[in-house]
Simulated assay, not measured.
Amino acid sequence: MADYEDRAPRNNLRLRGVPESISPEDLQVYVRVLLHTYSPDISADMLLVDRVHRVAKPKYLPDSTPRDVLLRAHYYHIKELVLRAHHSRPDPHEHYPSIRIMADLSAAMLRCRREFQQVTSEMRNQGIRYRWGFLTKFNITKNREAVIISKPEEGLIALKRWGFLAKLTTGATPMPQRQGRNNSADSAHRLTA
């Protein structure tokens, strides 16, 4: 079920910070204008949004916090272009300073990715670019070497090999194993070789 939950919403985007003053009838237009503002090179006929609606707010958030907006982009690659454009901006957009655009990930996926926080934080500090793959893997290219990391320990080994960690940090929580294809042994071999 967790695997299905992570695969089903692959075209979805979650928008955080959209004011509640935007009515449900106006959300479709608001979202299309926002997406076009972030990615002006994408033609309007490619920016198709199949569905858009607000989702329930977690109880721990204050009443003043607007509910997230969930949308389904018709084309997967458009969703990826918008995410990339949003994350590559050094500063918030001048017209949408409070908006955050995120992939729609399940709670289980977010928990697993949090286990990589030590590794991803160090990579950002060192200016190493990485890209999340599907499920809990991410791809790094460093010195023309492509590495696929599927466990936090593998990321720490790679950082140590590249000279960014003086000593291998312990304490990374092991990730729960998923059924299906597992390339972690292959990637671990490349990291330690």
Rank of each mutant, 00 (worst) to 15 (best):
V18H: 00
P19R: 06
Q28N: 09
V31R: 02
L34K: 13
L34Q: 12
L35K: 03
T37A: 04
Y38H: 01
Y38N: 00
S39K: 04
D41T: 00
I42N: 12
I42W: 14
I42H: 11
S43R: 12
L47Q: 06
L47I: 10
L48Y: 09
L48P: 03
L48T: 12
V49L: 11
R51F: 14
R51V: 11
V52I: 03
H53D: 10
H53Q: 13
R54G: 05
A56N: 00
K57G: 02
K57C: 05
K59T: 00
P62F: 05
D63K: 15
D63E: 15
P66V: 10
R67H: 04
D68A: 11
L71M: 15
L71S: 10
R72I: 01
H74P: 01
Y76A: 04
H77E: 10
H77K: 08
L81H: 03
V82W: 01
R84S: 01
R84C: 00
H86P: 09
H86D: 15
S88C: 06
S88N: 11
R89V: 08
Y96Q: 09
P97Y: 08
S98L: 09
I99P: 06
I99M: 07
I99C: 05
I99L: 12
I101Y: 02
A103Y: 02
A103C: 06
L105Q: 13
S106A: 07
A107C: 09
A107S: 14
M109T: 14
M109H: 02
M109N: 03
L110C: 08
C112S: 04
E115A: 15
F116H: 11
Q117W: 08
Q117Y: 13
V119Y: 05
V119N: 11
V119A: 08
T120P: 08
S121I: 03
E122Y: 05
M123W: 03
M123E: 06
R124E: 14
R124I: 06
R124Q: 12
N125T: 04
N125R: 14
Q126R: 15
G127M: 14
G127N: 09
I128F: 13
I128T: 06
Y130Q: 06
W132C: 04
F134S: 05
